[in-house]
Amino acid sequence: MSGLPRRALAGLLAPALLGVPAARATAWPDRPIRLIYPFTGGSPTEALARTVAEQARLALGVPIVFDSRPGAGGQIAAEALARSAPDGHTLGWVTTNILTVNPHLYPNLAYRTADFAPLTVTYRGPLVLAAGRGLPGGDLAGTVAEMRRRPGLAYATAGIGTSPHLLMEMFQAQTGVELAHLPFRGEQLILTELLAGRVPLFCGSLATLQPQLDSGAFRVLAISTSGRLPGAPDIPSFAELGMPSLTWRYWHGMVAPAGTPEPLLRRLHEVLHGVIRSAPVQARAMLDMQVEPTTREEFAALIARDLDAYGRLIRERGITLT
């Protein structure tokens, strides 16, 4: 973290420290705590988040109300959190996109990254690139050669500005291929099309593909980890295939509204750190989830780094919502 801009890091942590009266330990929590969640139900991430909420309930002794606010790329949930009272009774589940990508894509965003006090990362995950059975090429090198022969070949992701979209922009910049982005409204929809042979390329979560890995309908070309995953040893990493700059992970984390009293932030972090490492939460981890907490400072540094890096990528590649 020594190479990170100190002002950026301080800016993320400062809102939690300015002009806030000391919290009375005996008065908190004195009612249910709300966890604002930015997605619809039914995903492995939701199962993980609900387990975190349940274990936090046991640790704090008050109900944790799971408040799902999906839509608009996480903006609805983030705005609701930013407008919540900074009293330790509202938390938010956030993502790479909500805090570090949306600010560069939406000119009239109703929240700022500085509106939130970082607590901890909940998990990090890599992305995979997969090719449908109808696309020739075999391994990654052969498939890249096929991409060069067919400029404009389509790749599917879960939407414009998502982590897979950004990774594929990096992939195109490194390989020099020209691909067409095909955004969907969710990875399960892409999987259906991939299995049917109607989508030539997919970039997204390995967890989405996991139930169909042995179907023969697609081949996983590479994963964005630094080395092979122990649970998927047959999938090579981009790094070992000569593309170390594509070693990349998205993240999910938890934050509080800026201005939440410092003693409450310390206590929330202490509780969440233990909760994330608990056996029930670890048992919810999918094949490609690294469920591991961080310090508040580490999370703030990660946000600052990614906010800068993705801003540069979006500008250099001319990524827009249209």
Rank of each mutant, 00 (worst) to 15 (best):
A85K: 14
E193T: 15
L307E: 12
L321Y: 02
L109E: 07
E169C: 09
D30W: 00
L268N: 03
H89G: 04
Y123H: 13
L302R: 07
V20R: 15
P244R: 09
T100V: 13
A279G: 10
L191T: 01
I98Y: 03
A300I: 00
R57F: 11
P126S: 13
P63S: 01
A285P: 02
L135V: 07
G176I: 02
E79W: 15
T143A: 01
R124M: 12
L229R: 10
F116G: 03
Q210M: 14
A53P: 13
G142S: 06
A49R: 00
P21A: 11
R83W: 06
R7A: 13
P63R: 06
G125W: 15
P38H: 11
G274V: 03
N108L: 15
E187I: 08
D234T: 12
A279Q: 14
E169W: 10
Q210L: 13
G204C: 07
A301F: 07
T122Y: 03
T162R: 02
M243H: 14
L287I: 12
L119I: 08
Q174K: 13
I235V: 14
Y106Q: 15
A110K: 14
E146Y: 11
S68W: 11
G152F: 02
R50N: 07
A300L: 00
F39P: 05
Y155R: 06
L166H: 06
D306A: 09
V101A: 09
R267C: 10
V255A: 04
G318D: 06
C203M: 00
E169F: 09
E316W: 13
G274D: 06
L99G: 03
G134I: 10
R69Y: 10
I190R: 00
L119D: 01
V144N: 07
G138N: 14
R315S: 05
T95M: 06
I303R: 00
A145T: 01
P107V: 04
G11V: 15
V20N: 14
A222N: 03
T90Q: 04
P233V: 06
L241D: 11
D139Y: 11
L167D: 01
S215C: 04
L221F: 03
T122D: 05
P32C: 12
E298N: 06
R317D: 03
I319W: 05
A22N: 13
T45Q: 11
M1E: 15
L119P: 02
S84V: 05
G161N: 08
H89V: 01
D214V: 12
D306V: 06
A304L: 01
F218T: 07
P293Y: 05
A10H: 14
R315H: 15
M254T: 02
G134Y: 14
P44W: 04
G3S: 12
A304Y: 06
A300Y: 00
L206T: 09
I314R: 01
P118D: 03
R266V: 08
I160M: 13
G204Q: 00
D308T: 14
V220E: 02
R148T: 05
A196W: 08
N108A: 15
I303C: 04
T294S: 07
L109C: 09
I235D: 02
G125R: 13
G137T: 10
V271H: 04
S245H: 13
A16H: 04
A283D: 11
L264D: 00
